[in-house]
Amino acid sequence: MTPLNRNQIAWRAAQDIWDGAYVNLGVGIPSLIPDYIPKDREVVLQAEVGIIGMGPTPKPDAVDPDIFNASTQPTSFVPGGSTFDHTDSFLMIRGGHLDIAMLGAFEVSEKGDLANWNTGDPATAPSVGGAMDLAVGAKAIRVLMEHTTKDGKPRILKQCRYPLTAAHCVKAIYTSLAVIDVTPRGLVVRETIPDLDFAQLQAVTEAKLTLSPDWRVIEAPAIAVTV
């Protein structure tokens, strides 16, 4: 079995964004999503810095230094795109106007608690940015992350160890091994990568998993890692 790479995780999550959705993409793996949204769907991307209708990364000769995203990287507008100030941007985020926020995470608990802002390292100033606003404000939070840490430890836990960004907010988790829904009955595995059996998945997941009756295998295209 071969885990999904970061781009394939982004591809898989992109397939579940519906036509007409208003979406905010966090830094890390979620920032790869725009390349993989099915071409027949119109998805409107919002950026904290004050853009709705964000377009693709411009070619180097088309970069306008005044058009940047929440990672301070060059971006562009799609036709219909617009800008606004920060109070309107966070009214949009905090007031429940976004359909989905796709976020990276350090850890997610079986209740859908999210930890993605602070590793508790006392030497580093904790940096929350807009993470708490998005986690509380968007209608649905979907997390994209590697299934385990670099040294193989679970990130999907009974309880988060790192300080929380928000409690009970995550609705779905897209990892390098599986797609998992957070439900009132616990974590339900909707999809797994080929040649991975359920016991293997449970072994690298601290929280208890159940298999959905509709469970299927992810058929991801081969995609090279870009970042």
């Binding site: 920060h86 109070t87 966070f90 905090r94 929350v128 807009g130 708490m132 606003d133 509380v136 404000g137």
Partner: peptide, 29 residues
């Protein structure tokens, strides 16, 4: 939190005494 900064500024600008928000409730912040 980023939106709490901008809203606290807006409250200051608008002559409001503050506001309640769900953001950061139940967290370290």
């Amino acid at each position: 939190p980023q939106g709490t900064i901008s809203e606290r500024l807006r409250a200051g600008a608008a002559g409001l005494g503050g506001f309640y928000t769900k953001v950061s409730a139940g967290t370290l912040l």
